[in-house]
């Protein structure tokens, strides 16, 4: 079942790329998708199929909207810091903890942190995230976790856990 969904996804992406419905193109797409699924099927992420559940899909859309808002905010923040003559930066690497368990959710959390205001994930070891922060405002680990992780953690828990 899982492999069949992967196969359908691959054929769909192929059809979008070629954007034609001639039978030769579709045939090549089906053969290539079948080969890719047979050879590399076991390295595809396991948790991705869960998202097709409607409740999770709804929270995925909410996450997308929140994520877009933070990305736009991050860009204006960075633009302000770069254009300002005095460069008001105060950088350092801090350590935060996450309560997310699955690999998929942790990967999404790390990528979201990289694209949000002033933070960049440096390393992820089990549940510890090392984050480079361009403007440190507190030195306490609790407050840092509150500021950096909390804005995505709850949403991602609803989508992927």
């Amino acid at each position: 079942m899982k492999r069949f969904v992967h196969f359908l996804l691959l054929v769909g992406i192929w059809l979008l790329f070629t954007w034609s419905l001639q039978w030769q193109e579709v045939l090549v797409g089906v053969v290539v998708a079948l080969l890719a699924e047979l050879l590399l099927g076991n390295i595809f992420p396991v948790g991705a199929i869960k998202v097709l559940n409607p409740v999770r899909f709804f929270w995925l859309i909410v996450y997308g909207v929140v994520f877009t808002w933070y990305v736009i905010k991050a860009n204006f923040d960075v633009a302000y810091r770069v254009i300002n003559i005095y460069m008001p930066i105060n950088p350092g690497i801090v350590k935060v903890r996450t309560k997310l368990k699955s690999d998929m959710a942790r990967t999404f959390l790390a990528n979201s942190i990289t694209l949000t205001p002033g933070t960049l994930t440096v390393d992820l070891i089990e549940d510890k995230l090392y984050v480079h922060w361009i403007n440190i405002t507190s030195e306490d680990q609790k407050e840092e976790t509150e500021i950096i992780v909390k804005r995505f953690e709850n949403l991602l828990e609803r989508v992927f856990e």
Partner: peptide, 29 residues
């Protein structure tokens, strides 16, 4: 304009981690 700001950050900021911050965010968006 975001691309320009990102590459300007790549030139101006002091160390590699700050450059990564500016360049990745601005040039991606």
């Amino acid at each position: 304009s975001f691309d320009l700001v990102g590459t300007l950050g790549l030139v101006r900021l002091p160390d590699i981690y700050n450059r990564l911050q500016a360049a990745t965010k601005c040039v991606t968006l």
